[in-house]
Structures are given as C-alpha cells and as structure tokens.
Amino acid sequence: MTSAFWAVYLREILIMKRRILRQSASMAVSPLLYVVAFGCALGAAVKVGDRSYLEFLIPGLAAMASMTQAFAIATEINVARFYFFAFEEFQAAPVSPFSYVLAETLAGVTKALYAVLIVLIIALLFGTRLNYGPAFWGALLLNSFSFAALAVALAMLVKSHADQSLLTAFVITPMAFLGGTFFPVDALPAWASAILRFLPLTHAADAARAGAFGLPPSPLPFIILACCSLVFFSLALSTVKKARN
C-alpha cells in the first residue's frame, strides 16, 4: 500500500512543484481582492463583536481557501482522466482504491494548506496577526480533508470536464459565499442560519475563527467535519472502485 500511495501522492506534488509560481499567484488573487475590497475598503468602519472586519474576514478566507483548493483536486483528476489518460496508469497498476483515494485526498489537503498559508501571508502584509494555533490548523485540516475526499468522489462520477465546472459553480461557489466566510451566520434570521449550519464550511469557518481569536474550541464543528471526512472518503472509495467502464 505504502509505495503505491507515495507514487500517486508524489505525482501530484511533483506537478504542483512544476507550477508553483503560477499556482501561488493564482491562489493569492482571490484572497487579495477580498482583503482589499471587503476588508480594507467596505469593512474599514465595520466591527464584528469586538473585532475589526478584517480580523473577522481572515479566518473565513482561510477556511474558504482550504475548501476551494482541496476541491480543486477534482479538476486535476479529471484533466488526468479525460485529457492525459493518466488515471489508466493507476488502474493498470496494483494500486488499491484505498491507497489511491488517500493519496489524492492528501494531495488536495497539501495544496489546501499551502493556499491557507498564502492567505495568512496576505493578512500579515495588511497588518493582521491572529492566533494560528492547533485549533485553527486542526479545523482547516479536517475541512480540506473532507472537501478533497468529496472532490475525488465526484471526479469519478462526472463524465466530462464541463460537468466538473458545473459542480464547482453550483456547490462550491455558493458555499464559499454563504458558509460564514464574509458574515456571521448567526446574524441572519434563525431559519436561514439553521439552513447554513448544514454546510461543512460554516463549521470550519466557526472553528477556525474561534481558534484564531484564541477562544476555547467547541468540539461540535470538529465532530461534524470528522463525520463529513469519513462519509466523503467512503463515498470516494466506492466511486473509485466503480470507475472502470
């Protein structure tokens, strides 16, 4: 299991290394725009509790970046499947579905945590320093693991690269805006807040924010994210097993 796992993981990391400059730049664009437009301009006079809006925004942006970059592994997998046929190389090799799913998921997690690091560097450049301790990283690790596993699962179900874009447009983009990144979910009417509590990103943003603000961590978001990780990982195992035509 170990060698095949490393092969799949290493392949993704080598490709990431080859593209590191342009990938870093593309990972920095969205957070930079949000920080400038929402954090510094629109939010300059806004306070959320006793925190500035920029301080409120940064953990949310980190959670959002961890989700979008982890989910982006689906695009990599689909490009490999539909354009470069690299998935066939794994199918023809003695690689168990568990090794394959774990490797692709952890590759997604690696990219996601790298994107979070970029968000934190941008925050630092804008003078925002928070508490990035184990609770903050733990929440983002679980968040990225669950979305990377979901990405692997869905990547096996879609029939074309265009379908993949639809999933991003209908699932990831709405979640990015509604999952507690830009506003406190509890500020919405109770019914809306209750609905948004079903989104994993809402819990990831809550837990990352609590960690970043140095508040005592609540176990609930971690339990929910761990459950999502388990469910999505199992789903990915099932779809990879059925991916042969």
Partner: peptide, 9 residues
Amino acid sequence: DIHGRLFSM
C-alpha cells in the same frame, strides 16, 4: 520513477 513506485520497486 512513479511507475516503479506504483509497482513497489
């Protein structure tokens, strides 16, 4: 190298 790793070499 990736292929060799896939086959546990």
